[in-house]
Write a protein that binds this DNA or RNA. Sequence first.
DNA 1: GAGATTTGACCTTC
DNA 2: GAAGGTCAAATCTC
Length: 261
Amino acid sequence: MEDTAATLAAELDRLLAMARELEARVDGDQGAPGAARELCAALAESVDRAMRLAGSSPRGGGGDGEGNAGTGRASVSGQVRGGRKAGANKVRTQVRVASVTDAGPLSDGLSWRKYGQKDILGATYPRAYFRCTHRHSQGCQATKQVQRAHADPLLFDVVYLGAHTCAQAAAILAGPELQPPAAFGREYQQSSPVAAPEGIQWPVEPVTPPPFPSSPASCYTPGSPWCQPAGSYGYAAGGADMEYDAEFVEMFLNLSEVQNL
DNA sequence: GAGATTTGACCTTC
DNA sequence: GAAGGTCAAATCTC
């Protein structure tokens, strides 16, 4: 029974993402009639309502109950792949950015250190592997994998594994210093002056050479299109639909609670 | 010098 | 054996 609901939720989720994208595009088109914009907004709203009716409301409770507003959606998935990492909890989310140059995404207010990158069979873009910076100092086991969707360069698949146990994560959840807007960029746009602790720049084209740049803060090839100063912070989608909310953060920070994976 | 990224190699799982 | 995930040395930036 739950499978049906889950499938329905997944489909609605996609619909919402598409609606948001359409809305963003229409919004960016000066020539678009106001009616079109209203229609897009209504569409997104309608889909979202349907999602709730379907019982998928991933943000269940709290806040605006619709913090997902954008396509920065989080969906708890089952094992994405057979589970080479047995026992690891996974939370998968898709993050959309406003533009390919805005792809300095996926900064969630936490400190991640890139430890690997891999070309994935059938995937246009490589997958990057990150782990919590405090892994050694505090034993934080959180890791995440980031991969750009081949079908949609603006869409990033982010998979979080393991729970954050570091002090920084706790501070984010409890403290005022990294409130969602600041940490997760709902308000941040490409021109945000905030320096991203982590930024990933993907190429516009699925080229292979400079594979998977990661941090603009210490990029080896300054000036290259792969290494631009932190333009955006967090899951921001300048003017588009990339929004994010604290609830998702809470979710992945408490992965231990997501046992049914 | 410290800390972070890159990248090839190795390990694990299917 | 193939593919994904992680390690660690080399290299780079601050």
